[in-house]
Design a protein around this nucleic acid. Structure first.
Lengths: 247, 247
DNA sequence: CGGGAGCTTGATGGACCTCAATCCCTGTGG
DNA sequence: CCACAGGGATTGAGGTCCATCAAGCTCCCG
C-alpha cells in the first residue's frame, strides 16, 4: 500500500478501488537533492507532492530576507495541496536532505474527487490534521517562551516520527541544524543554541550529531504544556475545561 | 443565495442543486450573546458553524492562563470544520459581539460530500484559504516586529471585510479591544497600546471608538510587507522570485 | 593546510513584558 | 442629580528575554 493510502486508511477504511486509485497517484517518483527547491512562493505550478523519503520544509520569505518555516513534512505527508487549490503557491518548499517525492497533478486530483468522494473527505481530513499542527505552531511562537517552544517542537516531532516508524519517543534522527530550527521557532540561531544548552543542562534532551535524545519526556511535556497528537485527534474522553474568559 | 454558497461560488460555478443543498445547510440559525462560547477545546460535539453576522474568535488556552487567538471569523466564514473531522475540537470559539450562526452537523456534511463531490472540493478550497491566513499569521508572529505585525493584521482585516462588503480599505468597524488584539498578535495589551500610538503618530492608521481608519494604505503595506489576499489567491502573473537560500 | 559549515560563548543593546498608576467613558443605582 | 464601579485606554519605570555583533572553536573535506 502506498504511503498516502496508509495514512488515509486511518480515517476511512479504503476499498480496493480507492486504494489502487491512490497508488496510481504516487506512481511517478522524483529524486531531489538536499537544498533543492520543489516549489517557490508565487509559482503557478498545478502540482502537489507526496513526500516518500527524507526531510523537507515549507516556509515563507520576508522582504528583509528573514524566513519563517511553517512545517517539516516527513514521510507520507502531503506538500503543496494549497498551492494546487489556490492556483498559486503561497509558500516555498525546500529539501533538507536528499528526498524522494511523487508529484500529483491538479487534474488528476480533481478526477479523484469526482470518482471517489470519500477520498476527498479523507484528504480533507489529512489536511486538517496538518493545519492543526500549524495552529499549534502559531500558539508556540505567539505565547510560549523560547525554551517551552523548543521543547514543544521536539516533542511533537518525536511523536510524528514515531507514528510513521522513524524513531521512538526517546530517540530519533533529526537533520535540522540550528539555523533551520531558528527559522522554524522564530528565534535567532544563537539563541537556539543557548536554549538547547539549557535543555541539555536541565537533563531534558540532547541534540548531538543529528540525533535527538529525549531523556525526560514527561518532564518535557510538563515544561512545554504538551498535548499528544493522538489525543488531539482521537480522544473522546470528554472535555477538560480550563477556564475561558471572553472579553 | 446563502452566505456560504456566495463564498464557494467564487471557486466553482455552483449548480442550482448544489446551491439549494448549501442553503439547506444554513437553514437553522442560532443567536449567541457577546462573550458566549460556541465550542471549547476538547469538546466532542460533531458540529461546525457558519457565521452569519457578528464577530467571533478562535483561540487556544495555555496551562498558564495565556491565550493565543488564531483567527477572527467574520460573515460567511466556516468555524470548527476541523473539530468535526478530528472528532474533538482542538480549539475554542467565542463570540466577540452578539452573533448569529447556523450549525452544520457532521452527518449532513458527509452527505453533502457524497451527493455533490464538487462541493467537497469547494469546501476544501475554502478551508485552504483560511489555512493560508493562519500561515500568514504564523509568519507575522514569528518574524515580524510588533509594529509590522500589527500593521499587517489590520491590512488583512481590512481586505477581508471589504471582500464581504463590511467596509472599505480606508475605514471599517472593528470591535476588537486591545486585550483581544494582544492575544491575537502575541503581544501584551500594553504594548499593543504603544504600537497603536506609533501607528497613529506616524500617520498610518487610527483605531478609535471601535472604528479603524487607515490613512495611508500604501505606506502601511510597505511597512508590513503586505501581499494582497486576492493576489495570494488568484494571481497568475508568474513568480517574483526573491531569493531562496536553502540550508 | 585552508576553507567552510556548523556549534559555542561573551558582551551589549533593544524590543517587549510586568507592575503600577491614572484617566476617560458609560452604565447603574441611589 | 450625583456617586460609584467597571471596562478600557494610556503612560511611566524598571526588568527580562532575546537579538545582534564579534570572536573562536571543532569537524570534515578538498
Amino acid at each position: 500500500m502506498s504511503r498516502l493510502a496508509t495514512k488515509l486508511n486511518v480515517f476511512v477504511r479504503l476499498s480496493d478501488d480507492e486504494r489502487t486509485c491512490l497508488d496510481g497517484l504516487e506512481a511517478e517518483r522524483i529524486r531531489i537533492r538536499r537544498g533543492g527547491e520543489l516549489v517557490h512562493e508565487g509559482q503557478v505550478g498545478h502540482k502537489a507532492y507526496i513526500l516518500q523519503f527524507g526531510w523537507a520544509c515549507s516556509f515563507k520569505l520576508l522582504p528583509d530576507g528573514g524566513r519563517q518555516i511553517i512545517r517539516f513534512p516527513i514521510g507520507g505527508d502531503l506538500m503543496g495541496l494549497r498551492g494546487l487549490l489556490l492556483r498559486t503557491s503561497d509558500h516555498s518548499f525546500s529539501a533538507l536532505t536528499d528526498i524522494v517525492v511523487s508529484s500529483v497533478e491538479a487534474t488528476r486530483l480533481a478526477g479523484v474527487f469526482d470518482q471517489f468522494p470519500r477520498l476527498g473527505a479523507a484528504i480533507l481530513w489529512a489536511a486538517s490534521r496538518e493545519e492543526a499542527m500549524v495552529v499549534e505552531h502559531l500558539v508556540s511562537v505567539g505565547r510560549r517562551s523560547a525554551v517551552e517552544r523548543t521543547a514543544h517542537f521536539f516533542l511533537e516531532l518525536s511523536e510524528r516520527l514515531r507514528l510513521v516508524g522513524l524513531g521512538t519517543q526517546e530517540q530519533f534522527k533529526c537533520p535540522l541544524n540550528q539555523y533551520v530550527l531558528a527559522d522554524a521557532l522564530g528565534l535567532s540561531a544563537i539563541h537556539v543554541n543557548r536554549v538547547l544548552r539549557t535543555l541539555r543542562e536541565r537533563r531534558f534532551m540532547t541534540l548531538r550529531d543529528r540525533i535527538v535524545h529525549i531523556h525526560d519526556p514527561d518532564g518535557m511535556k510538563m515544561l512545554a504544556g504538551y498535548q499528544e497528537i493522538e489525543g488531539r485527534i482521537f480522544d473522546t474522553s470528554g472535555s477538560k475545561r480550563i477556564r475561558a474568559e471572553a472579553n
